[in-house]
Amino acid sequence: MTKPFKFKQFEIYQDRCAMKIGTDGVLLGAWTSLMNRPQSILDIGTGTGLLALMLAQRSRAETIDALEIDENAYEQCVGNFEASPWGDRLFCYHAGLDEFTEEIEETYDLIISNPPFHSEEVSSGNVARDLARQNQSLPFEELIDGVSLLLNPNGTFSTIIPFKEERPFLALASHKGLYPERITRVKGTPTSEIKRSLLQFSFTEGNVDMNELIIEKERHQYTDDYIALTQDFYLKM
């Protein structure tokens, strides 16, 4: 039996999921603002269920839905939800975003997604992992189209993407009336290049809260900002 990845209030089995738990997902789940006190949340491309579980811990949302197209990941996500303290609030749909958008009529107060973003062809020898990493399985255009249809008019959408994709992603979003509220650019160390962009959108255009997050001062020496952000989740923080 494979050991689960243990967080402070829940644990996640991930042996059947192509994409394992990583810094990106934990950052996004901890960073996403809940200022609008969402009562309904959707996690698109949930994988292990990490983001949905983090938001279940952080919020009082009555409905937390997740969407996963890969059968193995879907089944594992359901198991992780059922084993958590919030199983009654969590539900995973086995479907693609396009069919889900066609069938679901209600909207969500918060939508979150840690999307695949390797647009170039990559091959690790693991077909499921390669599909999960390549955005052919969920192109940014399809993600933004789906969000624009499923998001409550007063809701927010939160995601993490490579910094090099930030400008085109913002342009795609603006075409659908989605405008950035918060942007945090993430660097591994003080001297490294910006690697990721954390983005939170709404349908209201206004001032953007922009800042930078550095993960490590040096190898395994985490910054105070990173510790403050993730300490409710990681066992060793």
Results as ranks from 00 to 15, higher is better:
Gly29His: 03
Trp86Asp: 00
Pro139Trp: 04
Lys195Leu: 12
Glu82Asn: 14
Phe201Gln: 05
Ala30Val: 03
Phe10Val: 00
Glu62Lys: 07
Leu28Tyr: 02
Arg129Thr: 08
Glu106Lys: 05
Thr223Pro: 09
Gly155Cys: 08
Thr101Ser: 15
Ile44Glu: 03
Ala30Pro: 02
Lys236His: 12
Phe117Ala: 05
Gln221Thr: 09
Thr48Lys: 02
Phe203Cys: 07
Gly25Phe: 06
Ser124Ala: 10
Asp130Leu: 03
Ile111Lys: 06
Glu218Gln: 14
Gln134Glu: 10
Ala171Met: 03
Ser84Val: 00
Pro4Ala: 15
Gln231Trp: 10
Asn152Met: 02
Gly146Asp: 13
Glu166Asp: 11
Ala128Thr: 14
Ser174Pro: 05
Asn126Met: 08
Glu106Ser: 10
Phe201Asp: 12
Ile21Glu: 08
Arg58Met: 11
Ile64Met: 13
Ala128Asp: 15
Thr204Cys: 09
Tyr226Cys: 13
Lys187Met: 15
Asp98Lys: 15
Leu42Trp: 05
Ala132Glu: 02
Glu205Asn: 09
Gly79Met: 03
Gln14Asn: 05
Ser174Trp: 01
Lys176Ser: 13
Glu62Tyr: 01
Glu106Asn: 09
Glu82Val: 00
Cys92Gly: 06
Thr204Gln: 14
Leu27Gln: 07
Ser40His: 08
Pro168Asn: 06
Asn80Tyr: 05
Lys187Thr: 14
Pro115Leu: 04
Phe5Gly: 03
Asp224Met: 09
Arg185Leu: 10
Leu131Val: 09
Phe201Tyr: 09
Glu121Thr: 04
Asp24Leu: 10
Ser119Glu: 00
Asp232Ile: 12
Cys92Gln: 04
Asp209Asn: 13
Arg60Trp: 08
Val127Thr: 06
Asp232Asn: 15
Ala95Tyr: 05
Leu151Asp: 11
Asp232Pro: 01
Asp109Trp: 05
Gly87Thr: 01
Glu165Ser: 15
Ala52Tyr: 07
Pro168Phe: 06
Glu193His: 11
Asn36Met: 04
Gly87Pro: 01
Tyr93Asn: 10
Glu218Thr: 13
Ser33Leu: 01
Gln76Leu: 01
Asn207Phe: 03
Leu67Asn: 06
Tyr234Pro: 01
Ser158Glu: 12
Thr230Ala: 11
Gln221His: 13
Asp209Tyr: 02
Thr63Asp: 06
Leu172His: 04
Phe203Tyr: 14
Ala128Ile: 11
Asn152Gly: 08
Met35Leu: 10
Ile111Phe: 09
Glu62Cys: 12
